[in-house]
């Protein structure tokens, strides 16, 4: 009895002491481009993949050569509405998704990209401010903005399938170009991402 009791107490104490102090914070820098899936939710890798899939397609579409042939210049694109429809109310930071597109468009040098309407409104506020406060030589005039030829809109739809601890996350990302002058939809493409998640 005595040895059992001593062993019980000693084991409990040792176990307890051994466990205390195991929780130190550990931080490791990782490659921002490395693929790391933790929860199965939308992440940076997905944004990058979608941009890499869709941007080359959009830039090789007939609409581009047709526009250039007709107007003799690069088309001007403005990012428009980005709607996310997910079953589980997943938060997808569309700024990060759009950033991947912006980067790809700018690097292609085939289109001129202008800012979103929210950013344009901020720039207009700034110009109003300059009218009052800036020197005449540095003041920027109004009515000099570059107008958009096309509005780039995007939509992410998701559908999940789950059985027990296994889950499939399916995303369909659609992107379209709308001619601002005619409201014609000149280009529409979609790409898909599917992930199997096991918990």
């Amino acid at each position: 009895m005595r040895s059992v009791a001593i062993a019980l107490i000693a084991t409990t104490c040792a176990g307890g002491l051994a466990l205390v102090g195991c929780g130190e914070t550990e931080v490791r820098r990782t490659d921002a481009n490395a693929v790391r899936d933790l929860s199965g939710q939308w992440n940076k890798t997905d944004s990058q993949k979608v941009a890499n899939d869709l941007v080359p397609q959009i830039l090789s579409g007939g609409w581009l050569s047709e526009f250039e042939g007709k107007n003799g210049r690069k088309p001007v694109l403005r990012p428009g509405k980005f709607v996310v429809r997910t079953q589980d109310n997943e938060v997808i930071n569309q700024e990060i998704v759009f950033d991947a597109f912006r980067e790809a468009f700018i690097n292609s040098r085939k289109v001129t990209l202008i800012v979103t309407r929210t950013d344009a409104a901020e720039a207009r506020e700034d110009r109003k401010d300059q009218d009052v406060h800036a020197s005449a030589s540095t003041r920027k005039e109004s009515f000099q903005e570059t107008a958009a030829d096309f509005l780039l809109t995007a939509q992410i739809n998701s559908q999940d399938d789950q059985s027990g601890k296994k889950k499939q996350k399916y995303y369909k990302i659609s992107m379209s170009l709308v001619d601002v002058k005619t409201n014609e939809q000149v280009w529409l493409k979609s790409t898909e991402i599917a992930k199997d998640v096991e918990r």
């Binding site: 996310v84 109310n89 938060v91 997808i92």
Partner: peptide, 17 residues
């Protein structure tokens, strides 16, 4: 002026959840 598209989607997702 302070609202961004990302905030809108976030708020929409929160209302739904």
């Amino acid at each position: 002026s302070a609202r961004s598209g990302a905030d809108e989607q976030f708020c929409d997702a929160m209302a739904g959840s």
